[in-house]
Nucleic acid binder design. Structure first.
Lengths: 158, 158
DNA sequence: AGCAAACGTTAGTAGCACTAACGTTTGCTG
DNA sequence: CAGCAAACGTTAGTGCTACTAACGTTTGCT
């Protein structure tokens, strides 16, 4: 947010939505900076982590599992495949599909990203005690859970 | 984030940075949707609120106070001025400057946005009790404060 | 007088999320 | 089994927030 040197004590300052989005902005910057030194961004990490967790899969399946939109998945895989971190092979059993799999280099990159990410958590939560961190995590989990449910009715009329 | 129907139980799910950015994403969507029905977005609200709080000012001053980047300020003011919510007049005392001021229509729009925003807070925090909301707000404030300090050293070497 | 700084503006980038449209391939159903 | 709907991958484009770079103008300090 550039340099709000004159501070910004308008009315919205204490609104939860403001606090949330601004703190998230800082978190996003921390993580983004950490990732960028190894030439990665959020989508790269998410895809690599999903691949390691679930194993090779089609682009559509990876999209569902990682929460990355199918159309963004194409570019993400392109970028990772160009650097040999991921492999894209046609599925012999279904010619519509590509099977994406993690390479050894991709796994090493994932390790690096995980390390960076762990450091970021600490930097992010620096001013909080262990109990406070725990509490914050719990509160945020509850919120996220709630909005995931209500936000995705999953065809509730059937 | 589209429809993560297959859920997304990979490793990152419990990381504070993830919880924070995802919850913020939901907050952002809530507010964005609410604002969009009156054809506004975040920057519009922030600028209107800043104008009401501090009164007429130059674009640069508004940028510092609202945290909106000067270059985005131009477009934001253009959009609001086109709809008569804000007025841009040259500063007779300093020909580099424009003086931006809130119109009556702009004030009415601000009222509308504030109402919508208040509703969003409730929707955002729905699953939390009053004490929990209070706690969350406090924790987030502490984080935000910390990162605002450390993120903007304000020429610490002088 | 001269120069650095502030100001407004334009143009462009990045990241994340999402829509729309298209052609191909499957696979269910009538 | 013919036909059609659905799934798949892809391309192109949009929106919002944030930021960088460059430019010409105007100030104001030295």
């Amino acid at each position: 947010m550039q340099n709000p040197s004159e501070k910004t004590p308008a009315g919205w300052e204490s609104l939860p939505s403001w606090l949330l989005t601004q703190t998230a902005q800082h978190a996003h910057r921390l993580v983004g900076d950490a990732f960028s030194v190894v030439h990665a961004r959020g989508y790269h990490y998410r895809l690599l982590a999903t691949l390691e967790t679930f194993g090779p899969a089609s682009q559509a399946a990876l999209g569902r599992r990682s929460g990355i939109h199918v159309s963004d998945m194409v570019a993400t895989i392109n970028e990772l495949a160009d650097r040999g971190l991921v492999e894209r092979a046609p599925d012999p059993a279904d010619r519509r599909r590509n099977i994406i799999s993690l390479t050894a280099a991709g796994q090493r990159q994932l390790r690096r990203l995980e390390e960076r990410l762990a450091e970021c958590q600490d930097e992010l939560l620096a001013p909080l005690s262990a109990e406070e961190r725990q509490r914050l995590t719990e509160l945020l989990s509850r919120l996220l859970d709630h909005h995931r449910r209500t936000g995705t009715p999953e065809e509730p009329w059937r």
